[in-house]
């Protein structure tokens, strides 16, 4: 289990208890966190689960996959800490993770 905090563009935060093994996108959608769409269902094919990972967590979360890198190059408002959260798997190591959602996913 990991406690993950999603902070919306407007500052509203949502704390979610996520099960190990699911993606961070799935955890957000299952808990109805606004700002994360995950339209393709986690196939890394739509880039609608874009998040910014807080600096302190970037090392723990790790880098982008190759497909993800390509998909992100077409997303709006990407930053160095941008990730598609369907590609981040929840584990105990992510307990306390904080990510921010962009202004929009489309």
């Amino acid at each position: 289990m990991a406690k993950i905090t999603f902070i919306e563009h407007n500052g509203t935060s949502h704390v979610v208890e996520a099960e190990n093994g699911v993606s961070v996108m799935r955890a957000a959608v299952d808990h109805n966190v606004p700002g994360i769409d995950g339209d393709c269902g986690g196939e890394c094919a739509c880039a609608t689960c874009h998040v910014y990972v807080e600096a302190a967590w970037q090392g723990v979360v790790g880098g982008r996959t190759e497909t993800e890198e390509t998909m992100l190059s077409f997303a709006a408002a990407t930053q160095d800490n941008s990730r598609l959260c369907c590609q981040i798997t929840v584990s105990d190591a992510l307990d306390g993770l904080v990510v921010h959602t962009p202004d929009g996913q489309h």
Binding site: A47, T67, T70, S73
Partner: peptide, 10 residues
Amino acid sequence: RAPDHMAARR
């Protein structure tokens, strides 16, 4: 060719 698809949507 997922990247083409993403570009196409734009």
